[in-house]
Design a protein around this nucleic acid. Structure first.
Length: 256
DNA sequence: ATGACAAAATTCTTTTGA
């Protein structure tokens, strides 16, 4: 049985609910959409999706961050926070659907708040690695998808797009991302496109999209059993050209 | 070294993002 899930950092769901509605209509194959940066409290999440018969769950907070799930069929939320990450910001929601556990994450950027801010990014990675280890020991089928705020290699950002000391490319950041792969998880994009520049984010500033000065920071890491089922990883690049677009575009994972 | 965009709250500026 085929299963498709997607991730999209929407940069305010209230400002872009119509874009998500349109996108879902154009992608009937998407069973579960994972959103990040909804930038609202749970009670402020637009009601149009529930009214359209979709299933919605949120981990929201005032003004910043926030993640949500929109499913075509019911799913069961397993947690609203990443176990072991002791931070009040809304950055994780996880659910079971069709025998699969999907963790939807919004990793701290790590550039603000000095070394303390960067330490939070590393702490999130540690907690995610622990979650992965627990799941791997039980041979669970799972995926961690979302905005990782990491360019895994130099091929994952346009030349000159970031300073070499930026938290998205620091060696410690890349090591933390690599560690998840060494545990046995697979970077879905690289499983289907081993080389090449494939971006998921273009800054609003300095005509970054027109110059294709982008970053690959939205990723899906798959457990071994899910990797065996991987059919495609698609970056919906055209969405960046929409009126009032988010600075991130949707990415889709299809399993057989 | 700085600013360029965009969104929300702290609202006509400031904070944060990547």
């Amino acid at each position: 049985m085929s299963f498709t899930f997607a991730s999209w950092n929407i940069n305010s769901i209230r400002a872009r609910a119509h874009l998500v509605q349109d996108w879902l209509e154009r992608h009937p194959e998407c069973d579960l959409l994972c959103l990040q940066e909804i930038k609202c409290e749970d009670s402020q999440f637009p009601t149009v999706f529930h009214e359209a018969g979709l299933h919605v769950a949120t981990t929201g907070q005032k003004a910043y961050n926030g993640v949500a799930l929109i499913g075509r069929r019911p799913f069961e939320v397993t947690t609203h926070h990443l176990p072991g990450f002791e931070d009040p910001t809304a950055r994780y929601i996880e659910a079971d659907m069709d025998g699969l556990t999907i963790g939807n994450l919004y990793l701290p950027n790590g550039n603000s708040g000095g070394e303390d801010g960067y330490a939070k990014k590393m702490a999130f990675f540690d907690a995610l690695a622990n979650r992965a280890t627990t799941f791997l020991e039980s041979e669970k089928s799972f995926a961690f998808i979302g905005d990782y705020n990491v360019c895994p290699t130099d091929e994952d950002l346009a030349p000159g797009a970031l300073s070499p000391t930026d938290a998205l490319v620091r060696p410690e950041t890349r090591a933390a991302f690599n560690r998840l792969q060494w545990l046995g998880l697979t970077d879905a994009l690289r499983a289907v496109q081993p080389t090449g520049r494939h971006y998921t984010f273009w800054d609003y500033q300095a005509a970054a999209f027109q110059r294709n000065s982008g970053l690959r920071i939205d990723h899906a890491l798959l457990s071994p059993r899910v990797t065996e089922r991987l059919v495609s990883f698609t970056i919906d690049r055209d969405e960046r050209a929409a009126e009032k677009a988010s600075d991130h575009v949707p990415v889709l994972v299809t399993l057989r």
